[in-house]
Nucleic acid binder design. Structure first.
Lengths: 221, 221
DNA sequence: GGTATGAATTATGAATACAAAATACAAAAT
DNA sequence: ATTTTGTATTTTGTATTCATAATTCATACC
Protein backbone atom coordinates (compact mmCIF):
# COMPACT_ATOMS: atom_id res chain seq x y z
CA UNK A 1 0.00 0.00 0.00
CA UNK A 2 1.59 3.25 -1.15
CA UNK A 3 0.65 6.66 0.09
CA UNK A 4 -0.99 9.27 -2.06
CA UNK A 5 1.83 11.66 -2.79
CA UNK A 6 -0.57 14.09 -4.46
CA UNK A 7 -2.77 14.43 -1.38
CA UNK A 8 -2.57 17.82 0.30
CA UNK A 9 -0.21 17.91 3.25
CA UNK A 10 -2.07 18.99 6.32
CA UNK A 11 -0.75 19.77 9.72
CA UNK A 12 -3.32 20.53 12.34
CA UNK A 13 -2.83 23.13 15.00
CA UNK A 14 -1.98 21.66 18.37
CA UNK A 15 -5.10 22.98 20.04
CA UNK A 16 -7.23 21.00 17.59
CA UNK A 17 -5.32 17.83 18.16
CA UNK A 18 -5.47 18.36 21.91
CA UNK A 19 -9.18 19.09 21.90
CA UNK A 20 -9.85 15.90 19.95
CA UNK A 21 -7.74 13.76 22.22
CA UNK A 22 -9.17 15.17 25.41
CA UNK A 23 -12.71 14.95 24.05
CA UNK A 24 -12.15 11.32 23.26
CA UNK A 25 -10.71 10.64 26.68
CA UNK A 26 -13.65 12.28 28.40
CA UNK A 27 -16.37 10.75 26.23
CA UNK A 28 -14.88 7.29 26.55
CA UNK A 29 -14.67 7.62 30.29
CA UNK A 30 -10.89 7.51 30.51
CA UNK A 31 -11.10 10.70 32.51
CA UNK A 32 -13.54 10.35 35.37
CA UNK A 33 -16.32 12.90 35.88
CA UNK A 34 -15.28 15.48 38.45
CA UNK A 35 -11.60 14.73 37.91
CA UNK A 36 -9.29 17.70 38.18
CA UNK A 37 -7.46 18.51 34.99
CA UNK A 38 -4.26 20.25 36.02
CA UNK A 39 -2.63 22.17 33.22
CA UNK A 40 0.95 21.40 34.11
CA UNK A 41 0.28 17.69 34.34
CA UNK A 42 -1.49 17.48 31.00
CA UNK A 43 1.20 19.61 29.38
CA UNK A 44 3.96 17.23 30.35
CA UNK A 45 1.77 14.27 29.42
CA UNK A 46 1.18 15.58 25.90
CA UNK A 47 4.49 17.34 25.58
CA UNK A 48 3.05 20.75 24.75
CA UNK A 49 3.04 24.14 26.37
CA UNK A 50 0.11 25.57 28.28
CA UNK A 51 -1.07 27.95 25.55
CA UNK A 52 -2.53 25.42 23.06
CA UNK A 53 -3.78 23.27 25.92
CA UNK A 54 -5.73 26.15 27.38
CA UNK A 55 -7.24 26.94 23.99
CA UNK A 56 -8.41 23.33 23.75
CA UNK A 57 -9.91 23.61 27.23
CA UNK A 58 -12.04 26.61 26.24
CA UNK A 59 -13.42 24.60 23.35
CA UNK A 60 -14.29 21.62 25.53
CA UNK A 61 -15.86 23.97 28.05
CA UNK A 62 -18.21 25.46 25.46
CA UNK A 63 -19.07 21.92 24.42
CA UNK A 64 -20.06 21.24 28.00
CA UNK A 65 -17.58 18.43 28.54
CA UNK A 66 -15.45 20.32 30.98
CA UNK A 67 -16.10 22.81 33.74
CA UNK A 68 -13.92 25.90 33.94
CA UNK A 69 -13.84 27.76 37.23
CA UNK A 70 -11.98 31.09 37.15
CA UNK A 71 -8.64 30.94 38.96
CA UNK A 72 -9.49 27.47 40.10
CA UNK A 73 -8.84 25.33 37.09
CA UNK A 74 -10.67 22.76 35.14
CA UNK A 75 -12.59 19.58 35.95
CA UNK A 76 -14.33 16.96 33.85
CA UNK A 77 -18.02 17.84 33.83
CA UNK A 78 -20.17 15.64 35.99
CA UNK A 79 -23.22 14.01 34.54
CA UNK A 80 -26.14 14.46 36.88
CA UNK A 81 -29.55 12.89 36.67
CA UNK A 82 -30.88 16.34 35.86
CA UNK A 83 -28.48 16.62 32.92
CA UNK A 84 -29.83 13.39 31.49
CA UNK A 85 -33.42 14.47 32.06
CA UNK A 86 -32.61 17.60 30.11
CA UNK A 87 -30.57 16.05 27.35
CA UNK A 88 -32.71 13.08 26.39
CA UNK A 89 -35.87 14.94 25.40
CA UNK A 90 -33.73 17.20 23.25
CA UNK A 91 -32.04 14.25 21.64
CA UNK A 92 -35.46 12.75 21.12
CA UNK A 93 -36.68 15.86 19.34
CA UNK A 94 -33.57 16.04 17.19
CA UNK A 95 -33.73 12.34 16.33
CA UNK A 96 -37.38 12.71 15.41
CA UNK A 97 -36.49 15.55 13.10
CA UNK A 98 -33.60 13.66 11.56
CA UNK A 99 -35.92 10.71 10.98
CA UNK A 100 -38.40 12.89 9.18
CA UNK A 101 -35.72 14.49 7.05
CA UNK A 102 -34.05 11.16 6.39
CA UNK A 103 -37.28 9.76 4.95
CA UNK A 104 -37.32 12.58 2.44
CA UNK A 105 -33.76 12.10 1.25
CA UNK A 106 -32.57 8.58 1.90
CA UNK A 107 -31.64 6.40 -1.08
CA UNK A 108 -32.47 2.74 -1.53
CA UNK A 109 -28.79 1.94 -1.22
CA UNK A 110 -28.66 3.65 2.17
CA UNK A 111 -31.73 1.79 3.37
CA UNK A 112 -30.11 -1.45 2.23
CA UNK A 113 -26.96 -0.59 4.12
CA UNK A 114 -28.92 0.13 7.28
CA UNK A 115 -30.88 -3.09 6.86
CA UNK A 116 -27.64 -4.99 6.64
CA UNK A 117 -26.30 -3.38 9.82
CA UNK A 118 -29.63 -4.00 11.48
CA UNK A 119 -29.49 -7.69 10.75
CA UNK A 120 -25.97 -7.96 12.03
CA UNK A 121 -27.11 -6.13 15.14
CA UNK A 122 -29.97 -8.57 15.70
CA UNK A 123 -27.50 -11.43 15.50
CA UNK A 124 -25.36 -9.73 18.13
CA UNK A 125 -28.46 -9.44 20.28
CA UNK A 126 -29.15 -13.15 19.87
CA UNK A 127 -25.56 -13.88 20.79
CA UNK A 128 -25.81 -11.60 23.82
CA UNK A 129 -22.85 -9.48 22.66
CA UNK A 130 -23.82 -6.18 24.20
CA UNK A 131 -20.75 -4.21 23.19
CA UNK A 132 -20.96 -5.18 19.53
CA UNK A 133 -24.68 -4.54 19.65
CA UNK A 134 -24.07 -1.00 20.91
CA UNK A 135 -21.54 -0.37 18.21
CA UNK A 136 -23.87 -1.37 15.39
CA UNK A 137 -26.73 0.45 17.03
CA UNK A 138 -24.68 3.60 16.99
CA UNK A 139 -23.74 3.16 13.36
CA UNK A 140 -27.37 2.80 12.38
CA UNK A 141 -28.35 6.01 14.12
CA UNK A 142 -25.34 7.65 12.50
CA UNK A 143 -26.49 6.61 9.05
CA UNK A 144 -30.02 7.88 9.65
CA UNK A 145 -28.50 11.17 10.72
CA UNK A 146 -26.39 11.29 7.58
CA UNK A 147 -29.45 10.61 5.43
CA UNK A 148 -31.13 13.68 6.92
CA UNK A 149 -28.66 15.80 4.90
CA UNK A 150 -28.40 18.41 7.60
CA UNK A 151 -24.84 18.87 8.85
CA UNK A 152 -25.87 21.37 11.51
CA UNK A 153 -28.33 18.86 12.92
CA UNK A 154 -25.74 16.11 12.78
CA UNK A 155 -23.23 18.23 14.58
CA UNK A 156 -25.66 19.10 17.37
CA UNK A 157 -26.70 15.50 17.81
CA UNK A 158 -23.09 14.42 17.96
CA UNK A 159 -22.27 17.06 20.54
CA UNK A 160 -25.21 16.15 22.75
CA UNK A 161 -24.67 12.42 22.51
CA UNK A 162 -21.04 12.96 23.39
CA UNK A 163 -22.13 14.57 26.60
CA UNK A 164 -24.39 11.73 27.67
CA UNK A 165 -22.30 8.94 26.20
CA UNK A 166 -20.54 8.45 29.48
CA UNK A 167 -23.85 7.33 30.96
CA UNK A 168 -24.01 4.57 28.40
CA UNK A 169 -22.54 1.89 30.58
CA UNK A 170 -25.17 2.74 33.16
CA UNK A 171 -27.85 1.57 30.78
CA UNK A 172 -27.28 -1.95 31.93
CA UNK A 173 -30.20 -3.21 29.95
CA UNK A 174 -32.43 -5.86 31.38
CA UNK A 175 -33.13 -8.77 28.99
CA UNK A 176 -36.71 -7.55 28.67
CA UNK A 177 -35.59 -4.04 27.82
CA UNK A 178 -33.11 -5.30 25.30
CA UNK A 179 -35.73 -7.40 23.56
CA UNK A 180 -37.97 -4.38 23.39
CA UNK A 181 -35.20 -2.19 21.99
CA UNK A 182 -34.62 -4.66 19.19
CA UNK A 183 -38.33 -4.72 18.43
CA UNK A 184 -38.30 -0.93 18.29
CA UNK A 185 -35.45 -1.06 15.85
CA UNK A 186 -37.42 -3.42 13.62
CA UNK A 187 -40.18 -0.86 13.41
CA UNK A 188 -37.74 1.96 12.83
CA UNK A 189 -36.30 0.10 9.86
CA UNK A 190 -39.80 -0.56 8.52
CA UNK A 191 -40.79 3.08 8.72
CA UNK A 192 -37.57 4.13 7.09
CA UNK A 193 -37.99 1.67 4.20
CA UNK A 194 -41.56 2.92 3.74
CA UNK A 195 -40.34 6.53 3.92
CA UNK A 196 -42.96 7.17 6.59
CA UNK A 197 -41.44 10.24 8.19
CA UNK A 198 -44.13 10.98 10.74
CA UNK A 199 -44.13 7.44 12.00
CA UNK A 200 -40.35 7.26 12.12
CA UNK A 201 -40.23 10.50 14.07
CA UNK A 202 -42.55 9.10 16.71
CA UNK A 203 -40.67 5.81 16.86
CA UNK A 204 -37.29 7.47 17.32
CA UNK A 205 -38.62 9.83 19.95
CA UNK A 206 -40.15 6.97 21.91
CA UNK A 207 -37.00 4.94 21.46
CA UNK A 208 -35.01 7.71 23.10
CA UNK A 209 -37.58 8.11 25.87
CA UNK A 210 -37.26 4.42 26.66
CA UNK A 211 -33.52 4.68 26.74
CA UNK A 212 -33.77 7.52 29.23
CA UNK A 213 -36.01 5.43 31.42
CA UNK A 214 -33.46 2.61 31.41
CA UNK A 215 -30.65 4.95 32.36
CA UNK A 216 -32.76 6.58 35.05
CA UNK A 217 -33.55 3.21 36.61
CA UNK A 218 -29.88 2.32 36.57
CA UNK A 219 -28.95 5.61 38.22
CA UNK A 220 -31.56 5.69 40.96
CA UNK A 221 -30.71 2.33 42.44
CA UNK B 1 -27.69 55.26 44.35
CA UNK B 2 -25.10 53.43 46.47
CA UNK B 3 -23.43 50.20 45.55
CA UNK B 4 -23.99 46.98 47.40
CA UNK B 5 -20.83 46.61 49.44
CA UNK B 6 -21.86 43.14 50.54
CA UNK B 7 -22.15 41.83 47.00
CA UNK B 8 -19.46 39.35 46.00
CA UNK B 9 -16.63 40.89 44.06
CA UNK B 10 -16.36 39.22 40.72
CA UNK B 11 -13.74 39.65 38.07
CA UNK B 12 -14.27 37.71 34.93
CA UNK B 13 -11.44 36.28 32.91
CA UNK B 14 -10.61 38.40 29.91
CA UNK B 15 -11.40 35.65 27.43
CA UNK B 16 -14.95 35.51 28.75
CA UNK B 17 -15.42 39.23 28.46
CA UNK B 18 -13.91 39.22 24.99
CA UNK B 19 -16.05 36.30 23.82
CA UNK B 20 -19.17 38.11 25.02
CA UNK B 21 -18.27 41.35 23.33
CA UNK B 22 -17.29 39.75 20.04
CA UNK B 23 -20.36 37.53 20.10
CA UNK B 24 -22.54 40.58 20.56
CA UNK B 25 -20.77 42.41 17.77
CA UNK B 26 -21.23 39.50 15.38
CA UNK B 27 -24.81 38.71 16.29
CA UNK B 28 -25.84 42.33 16.06
CA UNK B 29 -24.20 42.66 12.68
CA UNK B 30 -21.56 45.16 13.73
CA UNK B 31 -19.02 42.83 12.21
CA UNK B 32 -19.95 41.90 8.67
CA UNK B 33 -20.12 38.25 7.58
CA UNK B 34 -16.90 37.24 5.90
CA UNK B 35 -14.99 40.08 7.52
CA UNK B 36 -11.42 39.28 8.45
CA UNK B 37 -10.72 39.43 12.16
CA UNK B 38 -7.04 40.27 12.49
CA UNK B 39 -5.64 39.50 15.91
CA UNK B 40 -3.34 42.46 16.18
CA UNK B 41 -6.06 44.89 15.27
CA UNK B 42 -8.57 43.51 17.75
CA UNK B 43 -5.90 43.37 20.45
CA UNK B 44 -5.15 47.07 20.16
CA UNK B 45 -8.87 47.83 19.92
CA UNK B 46 -9.68 46.02 23.16
CA UNK B 47 -6.36 46.74 24.81
CA UNK B 48 -5.50 43.12 25.55
CA UNK B 49 -2.83 40.70 24.49
CA UNK B 50 -3.30 37.99 21.91
CA UNK B 51 -3.57 35.12 24.40
CA UNK B 52 -7.03 35.82 25.83
CA UNK B 53 -8.27 37.03 22.46
CA UNK B 54 -7.32 33.78 20.81
CA UNK B 55 -9.03 31.81 23.56
CA UNK B 56 -12.20 33.79 22.91
CA UNK B 57 -11.88 33.06 19.19
CA UNK B 58 -11.80 29.30 19.80
CA UNK B 59 -15.02 29.61 21.76
CA UNK B 60 -16.77 31.60 19.05
CA UNK B 61 -15.52 29.11 16.47
CA UNK B 62 -17.10 26.18 18.31
CA UNK B 63 -20.28 28.21 18.53
CA UNK B 64 -20.18 28.55 14.77
CA UNK B 65 -20.04 32.34 14.72
CA UNK B 66 -16.53 32.52 13.41
CA UNK B 67 -14.48 30.54 10.94
CA UNK B 68 -10.94 29.57 11.89
CA UNK B 69 -8.56 28.59 9.11
CA UNK B 70 -5.19 27.20 10.25
CA UNK B 71 -2.34 29.63 9.71
CA UNK B 72 -4.72 31.91 7.89
CA UNK B 73 -6.66 33.60 10.62
CA UNK B 74 -10.23 34.16 11.48
CA UNK B 75 -13.30 35.49 9.66
CA UNK B 76 -16.88 36.15 10.68
CA UNK B 77 -18.92 33.14 9.57
CA UNK B 78 -21.08 33.76 6.55
CA UNK B 79 -24.75 32.94 6.67
CA UNK B 80 -25.74 31.03 3.58
CA UNK B 81 -29.21 30.08 2.47
CA UNK B 82 -28.23 26.48 3.21
CA UNK B 83 -27.36 27.43 6.78
CA UNK B 84 -30.82 28.88 7.26
CA UNK B 85 -32.46 25.86 5.68
CA UNK B 86 -30.58 23.71 8.15
CA UNK B 87 -31.04 25.85 11.22
CA UNK B 88 -34.74 26.67 11.04
CA UNK B 89 -36.10 23.12 11.15
CA UNK B 90 -33.89 22.47 14.15
CA UNK B 91 -35.12 25.62 15.85
CA UNK B 92 -38.65 24.52 15.02
CA UNK B 93 -38.11 21.15 16.65
CA UNK B 94 -36.54 22.73 19.72
CA UNK B 95 -39.28 25.34 20.01
CA UNK B 96 -41.90 22.64 19.71
CA UNK B 97 -40.26 20.74 22.52
CA UNK B 98 -39.94 23.82 24.68
CA UNK B 99 -43.63 24.53 24.09
CA UNK B 100 -44.58 21.07 25.22
CA UNK B 101 -42.39 21.28 28.30
CA UNK B 102 -43.55 24.81 29.07
CA UNK B 103 -47.17 23.65 29.16
CA UNK B 104 -46.27 21.16 31.84
CA UNK B 105 -44.47 23.62 34.07
CA UNK B 106 -45.65 27.15 33.44
CA UNK B 107 -47.35 29.02 36.27
CA UNK B 108 -50.39 31.25 35.97
CA UNK B 109 -48.22 34.22 36.80
CA UNK B 110 -45.92 33.43 33.89
CA UNK B 111 -48.85 33.06 31.51
CA UNK B 112 -50.14 36.42 32.71
CA UNK B 113 -46.75 37.99 32.09
CA UNK B 114 -46.63 36.59 28.58
CA UNK B 115 -50.16 37.77 27.92
CA UNK B 116 -49.16 41.25 28.98
CA UNK B 117 -46.17 41.26 26.66
CA UNK B 118 -48.32 39.84 23.91
CA UNK B 119 -50.82 42.65 24.18
CA UNK B 120 -48.09 45.24 24.13
CA UNK B 121 -46.69 43.50 21.08
CA UNK B 122 -50.04 43.64 19.31
CA UNK B 123 -50.20 47.37 19.95
CA UNK B 124 -46.73 47.74 18.42
CA UNK B 125 -48.01 45.84 15.41
CA UNK B 126 -50.97 48.18 15.12
CA UNK B 127 -48.60 51.12 15.36
CA UNK B 128 -46.33 49.60 12.72
CA UNK B 129 -43.33 49.73 15.06
CA UNK B 130 -41.39 46.77 13.70
CA UNK B 131 -38.34 47.06 15.90
CA UNK B 132 -40.32 47.23 19.14
CA UNK B 133 -42.48 44.40 17.87
CA UNK B 134 -39.40 42.24 17.34
CA UNK B 135 -38.12 43.01 20.78
CA UNK B 136 -41.34 41.97 22.51
CA UNK B 137 -41.64 38.96 20.24
CA UNK B 138 -38.24 37.83 21.35
CA UNK B 139 -39.06 38.32 25.01
CA UNK B 140 -42.15 36.16 24.67
CA UNK B 141 -40.23 33.32 23.11
CA UNK B 142 -37.63 33.75 25.82
CA UNK B 143 -40.26 33.39 28.54
CA UNK B 144 -41.71 30.26 26.97
CA UNK B 145 -38.23 28.84 26.86
CA UNK B 146 -37.71 29.69 30.52
CA UNK B 147 -40.99 28.00 31.42
CA UNK B 148 -39.74 24.78 29.85
CA UNK B 149 -37.35 24.47 32.81
CA UNK B 150 -34.63 22.97 30.70
CA UNK B 151 -31.43 25.03 30.77
CA UNK B 152 -29.69 22.79 28.25
CA UNK B 153 -32.52 23.33 25.80
CA UNK B 154 -32.50 27.05 26.46
CA UNK B 155 -28.79 27.24 25.86
CA UNK B 156 -29.02 25.38 22.57
CA UNK B 157 -31.87 27.54 21.37
CA UNK B 158 -29.97 30.66 22.28
CA UNK B 159 -26.87 29.49 20.47
CA UNK B 160 -28.77 28.58 17.32
CA UNK B 161 -30.83 31.74 17.25
CA UNK B 162 -27.64 33.74 17.72
CA UNK B 163 -26.31 32.22 14.54
CA UNK B 164 -29.34 33.10 12.44
CA UNK B 165 -30.12 36.35 14.17
CA UNK B 166 -28.07 38.24 11.62
CA UNK B 167 -30.61 37.19 9.00
CA UNK B 168 -33.32 38.89 10.99
CA UNK B 169 -33.25 42.14 9.14
CA UNK B 170 -33.72 40.17 5.96
CA UNK B 171 -37.13 39.09 7.16
CA UNK B 172 -38.57 42.30 5.84
CA UNK B 173 -42.07 41.18 6.58
CA UNK B 174 -44.82 41.98 4.18
CA UNK B 175 -47.96 43.46 5.81
CA UNK B 176 -49.81 40.22 5.07
CA UNK B 177 -47.09 38.11 6.65
CA UNK B 178 -46.98 40.36 9.68
CA UNK B 179 -50.72 40.08 10.19
CA UNK B 180 -50.44 36.36 9.97
CA UNK B 181 -47.58 36.25 12.46
CA UNK B 182 -49.68 38.16 14.97
CA UNK B 183 -52.56 35.75 14.44
CA UNK B 184 -50.20 32.86 15.05
CA UNK B 185 -49.10 34.45 18.26
CA UNK B 186 -52.71 34.72 19.40
CA UNK B 187 -53.09 30.99 18.99
CA UNK B 188 -49.79 30.31 20.69
CA UNK B 189 -50.95 32.26 23.71
CA UNK B 190 -54.26 30.40 23.74
CA UNK B 191 -52.59 27.00 23.64
CA UNK B 192 -50.21 28.05 26.39
CA UNK B 193 -53.02 29.28 28.62
CA UNK B 194 -54.90 26.02 28.02
CA UNK B 195 -51.70 24.04 28.71
CA UNK B 196 -52.26 22.24 25.44
CA UNK B 197 -48.69 21.06 24.82
CA UNK B 198 -49.27 19.11 21.63
CA UNK B 199 -51.08 21.98 20.01
CA UNK B 200 -48.51 24.52 21.15
CA UNK B 201 -45.73 22.36 19.76
CA UNK B 202 -47.37 22.30 16.34
CA UNK B 203 -48.07 26.01 16.42
CA UNK B 204 -44.51 26.94 17.32
CA UNK B 205 -43.06 24.62 14.72
CA UNK B 206 -45.29 26.09 12.02
CA UNK B 207 -44.52 29.58 13.25
CA UNK B 208 -40.84 28.93 12.70
CA UNK B 209 -41.46 27.33 9.31
CA UNK B 210 -43.30 30.47 8.23
CA UNK B 211 -40.48 32.64 9.44
CA UNK B 212 -38.03 30.61 7.37
CA UNK B 213 -40.21 31.08 4.31
CA UNK B 214 -40.19 34.83 4.83
CA UNK B 215 -36.43 34.93 5.16
CA UNK B 216 -35.99 32.68 2.14
CA UNK B 217 -38.14 34.96 0.02
CA UNK B 218 -36.15 37.96 1.16
CA UNK B 219 -32.87 36.22 0.33
CA UNK B 220 -33.75 34.86 -3.09
CA UNK B 221 -34.79 38.13 -4.60
C1' DG C 1 -6.70 19.66 70.81
C1' DG C 2 -8.79 22.71 67.68
C1' DT C 3 -9.10 26.90 65.25
C1' DA C 4 -7.18 31.02 63.19
C1' DT C 5 -3.54 33.60 60.99
C1' DG C 6 0.19 34.36 57.85
C1' DA C 7 4.15 32.90 54.95
C1' DA C 8 5.56 29.68 51.32
C1' DT C 9 4.20 27.11 47.52
C1' DT C 10 1.63 26.08 43.62
C1' DA C 11 -1.69 26.97 39.93
C1' DT C 12 -3.93 29.96 36.89
C1' DG C 13 -4.36 34.47 34.12
C1' DA C 14 -2.21 37.42 30.90
C1' DA C 15 1.64 39.39 28.31
C1' DT C 16 5.69 38.92 25.85
C1' DA C 17 9.08 36.51 22.97
C1' DC C 18 10.30 33.42 19.56
C1' DA C 19 9.31 30.19 15.47
C1' DA C 20 7.03 29.04 11.41
C1' DA C 21 3.91 29.79 7.93
C1' DA C 22 1.52 32.85 4.70
C1' DT C 23 1.27 36.99 2.15
C1' DA C 24 3.07 40.95 -0.36
C1' DC C 25 6.25 42.67 -3.18
C1' DA C 26 10.19 43.28 -6.16
C1' DA C 27 13.28 41.54 -9.48
C1' DA C 28 14.43 38.41 -13.10
C1' DA C 29 13.26 35.46 -16.83
C1' DT C 30 10.51 34.13 -20.66
C1' DA D 1 3.75 42.32 -20.77
C1' DT D 2 3.22 38.24 -18.12
C1' DT D 3 4.77 34.82 -15.31
C1' DT D 4 7.99 32.99 -12.16
C1' DT D 5 11.11 33.08 -8.38
C1' DG D 6 13.33 34.88 -4.45
C1' DT D 7 13.09 38.07 -0.47
C1' DA D 8 10.90 41.08 2.98
C1' DT D 9 7.05 41.72 5.76
C1' DT D 10 3.22 40.41 8.20
C1' DT D 11 0.46 37.13 10.61
C1' DT D 12 -0.36 33.13 13.04
C1' DG D 13 1.26 29.17 16.17
C1' DT D 14 3.66 27.94 20.23
C1' DA D 15 6.67 28.57 24.18
C1' DT D 16 8.19 31.23 27.88
C1' DT D 17 7.90 34.71 31.34
C1' DC D 18 5.71 37.60 34.63
C1' DA D 19 1.67 38.72 37.67
C1' DT D 20 -1.90 37.42 40.57
C1' DA D 21 -4.95 34.52 42.90
C1' DA D 22 -5.64 30.08 45.44
C1' DT D 23 -3.93 26.45 48.22
C1' DT D 24 -0.95 24.34 51.59
C1' DC D 25 1.35 24.11 55.64
C1' DA D 26 3.49 25.70 59.75
C1' DT D 27 2.90 28.46 63.71
C1' DA D 28 0.49 31.07 67.22
C1' DC D 29 -3.40 31.57 69.93
C1' DC D 30 -7.49 30.28 72.34
Amino acid sequence: MSIDVAAPIQRRPLHNELADRLRHMIVEGELAPGEKLAEKELCSQFGVSRTPLREAMRVLATEGLVLLTPNRGCTVAKLTLADLDEAFPIMGALEALSGELACRHITDAEVARIRELHERMVRKYEAGALRDYFKLNEQIHQLILAAARNPTLAQMQLSLSGRVRRARYLANMSPARWTRAVAEHEKILEALAARDGKRLAVLLKDHLANKLQTVQEALTE
